[in-house]
Simulated assay, not measured.
Amino acid sequence: MTDTLSSAPVDRDGLPEVIRRYLTVHNAGDASASAALMTPNAQVTDDGKTYDGLPAIEQWLNRAASEYTYTTTYVGAAEVAPDRWTVTQRLDGNFPGNTIELRYDFTLEDGLIRRLVIAP
């Protein structure tokens, strides 16, 4: 993936609406609202595992929402290409290590999220 430091920084209000909505509903633990922002053939990669299609993504979202309690802090974002955005958030919670900074690499298609890769 392209390094976000090579792109112009973007504040949260400068993100595409679908990404802003995703961050809001995902951080609230709303799996069905998060999945509704994705294409039918979406793909998510998180923690080294890839989830293909909405049923698998909804299962991942439900598990992720119930596994740990955490808060998120928006750190920054960058536009990588017209359809690709990278968002960095800090998570503080009851998971191993208690704090981590994660990068969310979004690929958009037709106003929805086609691909999301989450990695440290």
Rank of each mutant, 00 (worst) to 15 (best):
N98T: 08
T99D: 02
D13A: 15
L15R: 03
D3T: 07
G29S: 05
E79S: 08
S66T: 14
T107I: 01
L23P: 02
I57C: 00
T88P: 06
D92L: 05
I113N: 00
A36N: 05
F95D: 04
T71A: 13
R114K: 14
T50H: 10
G48Q: 09
P96D: 04
M38K: 02
L108C: 03
P40M: 10
Y51H: 14
P55L: 15
T88Q: 12
D92Y: 06
D3L: 12
T45F: 06
V10R: 03
A81D: 11
S66I: 10
T99K: 13
T73G: 11
G29C: 04
T50Q: 15
L5V: 15
A81P: 09
K49C: 03
I100L: 08
L102T: 08
F95N: 02
D47Q: 15
L37I: 04
A56N: 11
P16A: 09
A42F: 00
T24R: 14
S32E: 13
D110V: 05
I113V: 11
M1K: 08
A35S: 07
L5F: 13
V80D: 04
Y22I: 01
N94P: 12
P120C: 15
T73Q: 10
A8W: 05
G14W: 12
T107Y: 06
R114P: 03
S7R: 09
A35L: 11
G29P: 01
A77H: 01
R103I: 10
V75P: 03
S7H: 09
G48C: 10
Q59L: 14
D52P: 11
I57Q: 01
L108E: 00
D3H: 12
L102F: 07
A119Y: 10
P82G: 01
N98D: 07
P82W: 00
N27R: 08
V10Y: 02
G97V: 03
V80C: 13
V44P: 11
A33Q: 07
N98F: 13
L61V: 10
E67N: 09
I100D: 06
L112P: 04
S34I: 02
Y22L: 00
G76E: 08
D46K: 06
R63C: 15
L91R: 01
H26N: 14
L37F: 02
A78W: 01
D110C: 04
D52T: 14
